[in-house]
Every structure is written in structure tokens, then in C-alpha cells.
């Protein structure tokens, strides 16, 4: 995709999924996160730091909200359907953990506001971020309802990887410099490798060929990743089983007990991450 191509076909790229989408998709990478299994341990988050060259920003910058955790574990003490809790003396139902990474929305609110088309939708269904094109306007971050975009306020590489920590940096992707926005890519470098391997072997990418770093590490196997365009993939089956469909702002389920839901889908962002509700004894 060249800049010229984007300029020539501006309308096409700006069309939302309700108007039939804007791509002939090759893949539609998607994730399913089972909150019944997630224990909130944070192995996924550290795995993400290791895989994606995420900078450690230090205490003072963390305090300013400049941490670069592409995958963060949110922890809430209440749940909308667990009532009442405020009057209870103890936190007797434990915590509510929520792993949050870029939801790879198909109608992403971050994309249309980028003045330089540094963030765009790939034929893989990903919200790509082109670091070289990014001028750091941070409009995308302001527009993301999930607050999942992270801005390089500093040249973190100067302080984050003192020797020999720099030897650990993953050569499959870049280290970002000051003034650039970044976010979860669904481990695009792993997708790339799997696609290359499949092409070399003259076959299609099989379900399970791509494992994201977070999914790989999860001790309870709470994360499933795959291609929604592959009818046999685990994610496709899970979305079907839980009666959640892409391209909708509200799901009308035959069985309302099915656990699948998408966060803030009412905002018409059409996220590609489906969560499965926690299970509670009552």
C-alpha cells in the first residue's frame, strides 16, 4: 500500500463496515479471551514486553501515564451484574480481571482521524500502525475508546535497554523512537512469518500456525487466536458458538446465556476481540 494509493482511494478506505467494508480481506485475525479462565497473573503482559520490544519507562513516567504496556491487565472490584457490593464488608467474590489489548476494530475510530494515514486497515483485518509515517499528532489515541494506543513521549531506547539488555531486542520488529504512536499488532511479525512459511510450502495458513506471544504464554489457555475467515478455525467456531457476529452494534442471541460479548460494541467500533464472560457462583 503506497501513500499514492491511499490518496487515490481515500473514500474506499474510509468506508465503514456497514457500507460493505473496504477490503477484500485475506484474513480476519481475531482473538477470544475466556474470562472464566483468566487468573490475572500477567504472564501475557510480560510475554508481550519480551516479544514486542516494549520500553520500560520507569516509575516517574509510569506515574504520568506514559507506560507502554500494549497488553495490560485491568482489575475491577465490582461487576455490573453482581449487586450489591458497596455495602459488603469484604471483597468476597474476589476481583474481576480484564486483559486489554488493541481490539483491532473493523470500524476503528483511530483510523479516520489520522492526518497522514499512518494507521490504516490491512487486508488481514488489522489496524496497522506505520511508524515511519506517524507524525505524532496523537489524534488516534484521543479517539480510541479503549485507550489502547501508547505514545513515545521520549526516546525510550536511550534508557530502557542498558547493555546487554539490548541483545534481547527482537530483530523481527523495530524499536520505536520519540514522537511515534504504537500499540498491539496481534504480533504481526509472527503472522508475517507464518504466512511466508505457508507460501513457501505452497499451502494456506493453518489454524494454530500463528500463536501470539500472550496466547502462547497464558498458563490457563484463556486466549485463543486465529483467522475468522477460516471456517474451521477455533475462533470462528467460538464466535459462532457464542452467537457473536462481526459487523453489528448489538448481538441478538437466540440463547442469551451464551457468554460471548465485545466491549463497547455499541459504539460501532466492530472489535475483533470477543470476551467470554466470567462465571460466578451465586
Amino acid at each position: 500500500m503506497s501513500l499514492q494509493n491511499i490518496l487515490n482511494n481515500w473514500d474506499k478506505y474510509r468506508k465503514g463496515h456497514e457500507a460493505g467494508g473496504h477490503h477484500v480481506y485475506e484474513h480476519m485475525w481475531s482473538m477470544v479471551i475466556d474470562l472464566n479462565k483468566c487468573i490475572g497473573c500477567g504472564a501475557c503482559s510480560v510475554a508481550c514486553y519480551a516479544e514486542n520490544n516494549l520500553a520500560v519507562v520507569g516509575k516517574d513516567r509510569f506515574e504520568k501515564g506514559q507506560a507502554m504496556h500494549w497488553l495490560r491487565i485491568e482489575r475491577y472490584w465490582d461487576e455490573p451484574n453482581l449487586k450489591p457490593t458497596a455495602s459488603d464488608e469484604f471483597q468476597q467474590h474476589g476481583a474481576s480481571f480484564l486483559p486489554m489489548m488493541c481490539q483491532q476494530c473493523n470500524a476503528a475510530t483511530c483510523e479516520p482521524v489520522c492526518p497522514v494515514a499512518a494507521t490504516y486497515h490491512t487486508p488481514d483485518g488489522l489496524n496497522a500502525q506505520v511508524y515511519n509515517r506517524c507524525i505524532g499528532s496523537r489524534y488516534c489515541s484521543n479517539n480510541c475508546p479503549y485507550r489502547l494506543r501508547y505514545f513515545n513521549f521520549y526516546s525510550f531506547y536511550e534508557t530502557s535497554w542498558p547493555e546487554p539488555l539490548n541483545l534481547q531486542l527482537n530483530p523481527d520488529l523495530s524499536v520505536r523512537d520519540k514522537g511515534v504512536m504504537e500499540k498491539c499488532t496481534f504480533c504481526v511479525q509472527r503472522i508475517r512469518t507464518a504466512k511466508d512459511t505457508a507460501r513457501r510450502e505452497g499451502r494456506k495458513v493453518r489454524d494454530g500456525d500463528v500463536q501470539t506471544a500472550c496466547q502462547q504464554s497464558c498458563p490457563t489457555t484463556a486466549i485463543v487466536f486465529g483467522d475468522m475467515l477460516d471456517p474451521e478455525s477455533r475462533v470462528t467456531k467460538l464466535w459462532k458458538a457464542h452467537e457473536v457476529e462481526l459487523g453489528k452494534t448489538a448481538q441478538h442471541k437466540q440463547h442469551p446465556e451464551k457468554r460471548g460479548y465485545r466491549i463497547f460494541e455499541g459504539l460501532n467500533t466492530d472489535p475483533c476481540v470477543m470476551y467470554l464472560e466470567r462465571v460466578r457462583e451465586v
Partner: peptide
Amino acid sequence: RKLVASVTA
């Protein structure tokens, strides 16, 4: 908000 929701066992 429906961030972490739950169903009964």
C-alpha cells in the same frame, strides 16, 4: 459499563 461481565455457574 460492561467491561467484565459474568454469568451464573
